[in-house]
Simulated assay, not measured.
Amino acid sequence: MSFEELEPRPGRGEALAGLGREDLDLYAVEELHERIVALEAEIARSRAAIEGKASKRSAADALFNFR
């Protein structure tokens, strides 16, 4: 067993909270642009996950709707 396996896993949302606390004054303008691109990609990934979950929910609702 490695030391990494012994460390507790970060909780949900901790990475996002850490981003909000990060000091942006340390970044150059180009680095801030790269950060925005990465965050926009994460937003798109989150939206795709929402759409996937919504379609699964709709399919389940249609399957179990006994009206």
Rank of each mutant, 00 (worst) to 15 (best):
M1H: 10
M1L: 12
F3T: 13
E5M: 08
E5L: 09
E5W: 05
L6F: 12
E7C: 13
P8C: 03
R9A: 14
P10A: 07
R12G: 09
R12A: 14
G13K: 03
E14Y: 00
L16S: 09
L16P: 02
A17K: 02
G18P: 04
G18R: 03
L19W: 06
R21C: 04
D23W: 03
L24S: 08
D25K: 12
L26H: 11
L26M: 13
A28I: 09
V29Q: 15
E30K: 11
E31V: 02
L32H: 03
E34G: 06
I36M: 06
V37I: 13
V37E: 08
V37G: 04
E40Q: 10
E40N: 09
E40C: 06
R45H: 12
S46L: 15
S46P: 01
R47V: 11
A48N: 13
A48C: 11
I50G: 06
A54W: 08
S55M: 14
S55K: 14
K56T: 07
K56C: 10
S58W: 02
A59F: 03
A59P: 01
A59E: 12
A60Q: 07
D61I: 09
A62K: 04
L63V: 00
N65K: 00
F66K: 10
F66P: 00
R67N: 03
R67M: 00
